[in-house]
Lab assay of single mutants.
Amino acid sequence: MEVRTIKVFTTVDNINLHTQVVDMSMTYGQQFGPTYLDGADVTKIKPHNSHEGKTFYVLPNDDTLRVEAFEYYHTTDPSFLGRYMSALNHTKKWKYPQVNGLTSIKWADNNCYLATALLTLQQIELKFNPPALQDAYYRARAGEAANFCALILAYCNKTVGELGDVRETMSYLFQHANLDSCKRVLNVVCKTCGQQQTTLKGVEAVMYMGTLSYEQFKKGVQIPCTCGKQATKYLVQQESPFVMMSAPPAQYELKHGTFTCASEYTGNYQCGHYKHITSKETLYCIDGALLTKSSEYKGPITDVFYKENSYTTTIK
């Protein structure tokens, strides 16, 4: 009895394709271990004539594949690729409408935090270190965002349907971005203890939790000093293409032309909904596939993004 075979390709990165001759009487799992086709788990399936010449994702289970996976995804987590594939199996079914010149995501599976993050990423200057993220990001900007969303979920250790947080998501993504040249110098002034300067680099240099107003941050924000008295913390120097200011959701007025974009969060910790506000020729609110415009805006804002380049204080 002759062994019926077909020729397929296996890959971990969709760049390096490895030619395989597979036995049609055995499952993919018996031949390769966990195997995925377009995100779908085909591990328990036997090869079919229609699979001839198709590319299958496999887990990096030998040295060659491990090197290829690390170079593309910059992670050695053995569960990463499987999590990416199972997320992709959902995100490829989502709709990605162009809204006001940006790629958004039609609401499904509690994905409003991903839509808000995706919209924000198209408006701030950011370059990702893992080629996987950078490639998928370019495709997302062009309207094909399924891979990018699935990668975000995998890097953030999230599953489809789980509630997510924009600030946490951005923080994970910033860790995989090139923020080497970003720098922030802060000064804390206390009447009792004097003053202390701190220099922050990388992710810490672009994120701040405690106030939404970048102007206020430049002037000074009140913080408790270690001595128990009130101290003032203010920005001395900022070198970065953008800054992200966050605070627990509270009524906040966004003035046209003073910011790049913002995240609105309605609801409580267990259950809520994100919308995205962007400042173009007027203010726009993007909620999944829905767009509304207004000249002014007041609502429960939790993150505001500002364009920056270089700032030095005039406070002496």
Rank of each mutant, 00 (worst) to 15 (best):
H90K: 12
R83G: 02
V42L: 10
E296A: 13
N14E: 07
D13L: 01
H51I: 02
T159A: 04
C193N: 04
S171N: 08
D38L: 13
E253R: 10
S213K: 02
T266G: 11
K316L: 13
M245A: 08
E162F: 02
G220I: 02
F217A: 08
D41P: 07
M26V: 15
Q175K: 14
M24H: 10
T226K: 15
K280L: 14
M24Q: 02
T314S: 13
K46M: 13
F128H: 01
S246M: 02
D287Y: 01
V243I: 07
H276E: 03
Y306F: 05
N111F: 00
P130Q: 03
Q123G: 02
E204V: 04
E281F: 02
A69S: 10
Y155I: 01
G210Y: 02
K280F: 14
D135M: 15
Y28S: 04
C193I: 01
V236S: 07
H176G: 01
R184K: 07
L151M: 03
L173G: 01
C190F: 03
P47F: 04
D41N: 12
Y252H: 13
L118V: 08
I315P: 15
Y234N: 05
S294M: 11
K298L: 11
M24S: 08
V221D: 01
P47D: 01
Q30H: 13
E71N: 15
T258H: 11
L133F: 01
L153F: 07
A117D: 04
L283P: 09
P34Q: 09
L153R: 04
D13K: 00
Y72G: 06
G39Y: 06
Y214E: 05
E168I: 08
V188P: 02
P78G: 15
G267V: 15
E144V: 06
G82W: 10
M24K: 03
A140R: 01
W107N: 15
S295D: 14
Q122A: 02
E162T: 15
L118R: 00
K92S: 10
Q20F: 10
L121D: 00
Q196G: 07
G29C: 10
N147L: 03
E2M: 14
C225S: 02
T258K: 02
A231H: 04
R141C: 15
A117I: 15
H51M: 07
G257W: 01
F259T: 04
G202H: 04
K44S: 10
Q251C: 13
M245V: 04
S279V: 07
E162Y: 04
T260N: 10
L59M: 15
M26P: 10
M26G: 13
E204L: 05
D165M: 15
V22K: 00
E215P: 02
D287F: 00
F259Q: 07
Q134Y: 04
L186K: 06
C182Y: 07
Y284Q: 13
A108M: 05
G29V: 01
T76N: 11
S310L: 14
V189M: 12
A142N: 09
L254G: 05
A87V: 08
V304Q: 02
Y96M: 02
Q98K: 11
K54N: 13
N309G: 12
V8H: 01
T302L: 03
C156M: 10
A262I: 00
T43D: 04
G299C: 04
N61S: 14
F80C: 00
E296Y: 14
K183V: 12
K298F: 11
Y252M: 06
T192A: 08
Q251H: 10
D41R: 03
H74C: 08
K293T: 13
Y155T: 01
I277A: 04
P34T: 05
R4W: 11
C271L: 07
K233T: 12
K219L: 07
Y138P: 10
V304E: 05
F242D: 04
T226R: 13
D62P: 07
M26H: 11
L200S: 12
S240L: 03
L151T: 01
Y137S: 05
N178P: 03
K7F: 14
T258Q: 13
L114I: 14
T302Y: 04
L102G: 00
L37N: 11
L163D: 11
V160Y: 04
N61M: 15
A142L: 10
N129D: 07
L37M: 13
A115K: 10
W107T: 15
Y252V: 07
C271H: 15
I277E: 05
R184A: 15
T199I: 08
F148R: 00
Q230I: 12
T292Q: 09
H74Y: 02
A40V: 12
K92Q: 10
F32P: 03
K92W: 04
Y269D: 15
Y137K: 00
V58M: 11
E52K: 10
M24G: 15
V221I: 08
Y234F: 09
S294I: 14
Q123N: 07
C182F: 12
A146M: 04
N157H: 15
K255S: 07
T64P: 09
I315K: 08
A154R: 02
D135P: 00
P249V: 14
T5L: 09
Y269R: 15
K191R: 13
Q197H: 08
T116I: 05
P241T: 08
C227N: 01
P248G: 12
A69M: 11
T199Q: 13
E264Y: 01
